[in-house]
């Protein structure tokens, strides 16, 4: 690769910006699960908790409630998250995050790792999933700890 071409690749990767890429990492669905980590690494449960409780990032508490005594006004459009780690395997939690629509076409749960087939997306969000692969792994790791 010439130096100029290498620079082009570097610029293209920088242009993705904010940790997002226009291409999603490939993943494999087995049954009702995505068994393997999107990033190939386990997520960080503590970071996952901050994503889940962040109402402009994870958005979870708009619809769900959970074991977050410090958080007022949790939603009730969706099931309580307590016990999610008992009800579902890590791989099942991952598919629920990545593409909930595959499990239930009518669900109100957003597909957090999907950029195709969306309609009328605002320019600032086009080509970007709701969460990055790393963030999804962090959330999955946190949800797996909710065992009662």
């Amino acid at each position: 690769m010439t130096a100029r071409a290498a620079m082009g690749v570097l610029l293209a990767s920088l242009a993705g910006g904010a940790g997002y890429a226009d291409e999603l990492l490939p993943y494999r669905i087995e049954g009702n699960a995505v068994p393997v980590s999107l990033t190939g690494k386990p997520g960080d449960a503590a970071r996952g908790r901050t994503i889940v409780t962040n109402r402009t990032l994870g958005l979870c508490l708009l619809c769900h409630s959970g074991p977050f005594p410090e958080e007022r006004f949790q939603g009730n459009l969706a099931p309580d998250m307590r016990g999610a780690g008992t009800r579902w395997s890590t791989g099942e939690l991952r598919l629920r995050m990545v593409d909930s629509h595959r499990l239930n076409p009518d669900t109100i749960m957003p597909a957090y790792y999907m950029i195709d087939g969306l309609n009328l997306v605002a320019p600032a969000f086009r080509g970007k999933p709701l969460l990055t692969a790393e963030q999804i792994e962090d959330v999955v790791a946190f949800l797996a700890t909710l065992r009662d």
């Binding site: 958005l59 957003p110 969306l118 309609n119 009328l120 997306v121 605002a122 969000f125 970007k128």
Partner: peptide, 9 residues
């Protein structure tokens, strides 16, 4: 009744 936006609702 059509889903819209990144949230897709």
């Amino acid at each position: 009744t059509q889903r819209i936006g990144q949230i897709s609702l």
